[in-house]
Design a binder for these strands. Structure first.
Lengths: 236, 236
DNA sequence: CGGACGCTTCGGCCGCCGCCGAAGTGTCCC
DNA sequence: GGGACACTTCGGCGGCGGCCGAAGCGTCCG
C-alpha cells in the first residue's frame, strides 16, 4: 500500500471523472463537438449552476475539457478527438445494456432524429454515417476486409470531391467508430472529420435542434447520390 | 432530474468500476490475459481479502470480469478483448501524465523488461510489439498509410507462416493499439492475437516472471529474422 | 477427523463527494 | 450608475463506498 502503481492511480483518477451521472451527461452533450456555456449544461443536466461549476472545474483540471472565457460566459468543449473517442468507447460498451424504450413522444422523435443522423464529435454517425461508410466501401473507396483503410481510389475520391485531408496529422487517417444505435462501424479519424466538416460547410447536412442530430438537405441528397450512388430513400 | 439520460447513467456506472485504485490495479494486472485468484490479486493490490472479494463482486456483476470457481479458488479474468481494449484506451490517456521515474533498482529492471516486451492482453506490445509491427509494415505486409490494414501480401504471409486467422470473427482483423511505453501503434485485433499466440506456442517468446513481460528466445530471434528480417539486436 | 486455507458476509468506521442555497465577484447593457 | 445576469465560492448536509477484522462456510490435505 505504501508504493502503489502510479498507472493504477492515474487510471482511477481519470475514470472518476466519468463516474458521475451529471458529468457523464455533460460529456455526452459535448460530443456534438461544440462549445457549451456552463448554464446551458446546468439546465441540460438538471442541477444548480453552482454544482455544475464545480464539475466543470474538475473536468477542466482533469484535461477532458478546455475552456474559453468570453465576457461573463464560460464556454467549454471537449479537449480533443481523443477525449471524444474515449467517451464513445465507453458508451459503446454501455449501450448494449440499455434497453432503448423512449417514454414520451417527444423523446421518441428526438431519438429517431438522432438515430437517423448525428455527429459523433467531428464525424457523421447514426444511419447517415453507416450509409455513407457502406457506400464508400461498396465503391471500393474504403476497405474493411483486412482492416479499416482508404484505398488508393478512396484517396483520389476525396481529392476530386474537393475534401482536403491533412496527411501529416498524428491522428490516424481513418478509424472505425462503433455506432451505439446501429452497432456497426462507421468512418472516423481525419477522413471522417473532413467529410463531416465538408458536409456541414457545403450544406449537405444541417444541424437540427440544439442537439447532435443532423438532417440531410435536398442538396445533400443530390450530392451523395452523384458522388456515392446513395439512394435518397436510404437516408429517410 | 426526474428523467435522466439512461446513457449517462450507464456511462457513469461503468466508469465507476474503474474509478477506484484497487480495482484499477486488478484490471491492470489482469491485462496479462491470464486468470488470477482472489488472494493473488489481494496481495498484489495490498488490501485485505475481504475487501478484494467485494471488488471482484462488483467487477463481475458489471461484466468486466468472468469468474471460474475451482475448489476453494475463485479465478477471475477479463471478460474479453473489449474490456482489455477499454483498459488500454484509458491507460493510454493516462500514461502521458505519469513521469516514469522508477524508485528502486528492482522496479527499474522490471520496468525495462516490460518496456522491452510484454503482452497487451492477447497481443505483443512494448518494444517487441513495435518492432514486429514496423517489420511487417516495412515488408509491405501491413499498411499504415491510409489506415491500419493487412495487405494481400500480409494475408499470404500469415498463411505461409502457419498462423491461422479467423476471418469470420466479429472482432476486427487488425487494430492499432497505442503503446504506453513507446507511444506508437502496434498490431492488435485478430491478427495481433494470432501472432502472439503463435509466438508463445512455438516458443518464440516466453513469459518472464509472473507479470506481463515476455522475452524473445534464441529460436524466436531466428524465426523473426527469417520471416521478417528483424535484426536480433533490435530486440535487446 | 481435524486443522489449514481460500473465500465470503457482516458490522462499523471514516472520508469523500455531490448536492444545494446564499452570498460574492465580475460583465454587460440600459 | 444601477440592475440583470453568468459564474464562483463557501458552508453544511447526506449518502455512498472503501476499508478492516471477526466470524462463518466450504474445500483440501495430512
Amino acid at each position: 500500500m505504501t508504493t502503489r502503481d502510479p498507472t493504477a492511480t492515474g487510471l482511477a483518477r481519470l475514470a472518476a471523472l466519468f463516474a458521475d451521472e451529471t458529468r457523464a451527461a455533460c460529456l455526452l452533450a459535448l460530443l456534438d463537438g461544440r462549445a457549451w456555456t456552463a448554464s446551458e449544461l446546468a439546465r441540460h443536466a438538471g442541477v444548480a449552476a453552482s454544482t455544475l461549476s464545480e464539475h466543470l472545474g474538475r473536468l477542466v483540471a482533469g484535461g477532458l475539457l478546455t475552456e474559453e472565457r468570453q465576457g461573463r460566459h464560460r464556454y467549454v468543449r471537449l479537449a480533443g478527438a481523443h477525449v471524444a473517442q474515449l467517451v464513445e468507447d465507453l458508451t459503446a460498451q454501455v449501450a448494449p445494456g440499455t434497453a432503448v424504450r423512449p417514454r414520451s413522444l417527444r423523446e421518441a422523435s428526438a431519438g429517431s432524429a438522432m438515430a437517423r443522423g448525428r455527429t459523433c464529435y467531428d464525424h457523421l454517425a447514426g444511419r447517415l454515417g453507416i450509409t455513407v461508410t457502406d457506400a464508400l466501401t461498396a465503391r471500393g473507396l474504403l476497405q474493411q476486409e483486412t482492416g479499416f483503410a482508404l484505398t488508393d481510389a478512396g484517396l483520389t475520391w476525396f481529392e476530386s470531391a474537393g475534401i482536403g485531408l491533412d496527411r501529416r496529422s498524428r491522428r490516424p487517417l481513418t478509424r472505425a467508430c462503433l455506432d451505439w444505435t446501429e452497432r456497426r462501424p462507421h468512418l472516423a479519424g481525419v477522413a471522417g472529420a473532413a467529410l463531416c466538416r465538408h458536409a456541414l460547410d457545403t450544406g449537405w447536412c444541417v444541424r437540427v435542434g440544439s442537439e447532435r442530430a443532423v438532417k440531410v438537405t435536398a442538396a445533400g441528397e443530390q450530392a451523395l447520390f452523384d458522388l456515392l450512388g446513395v439512394e435518397p430513400a436510404a437516408l429517410r
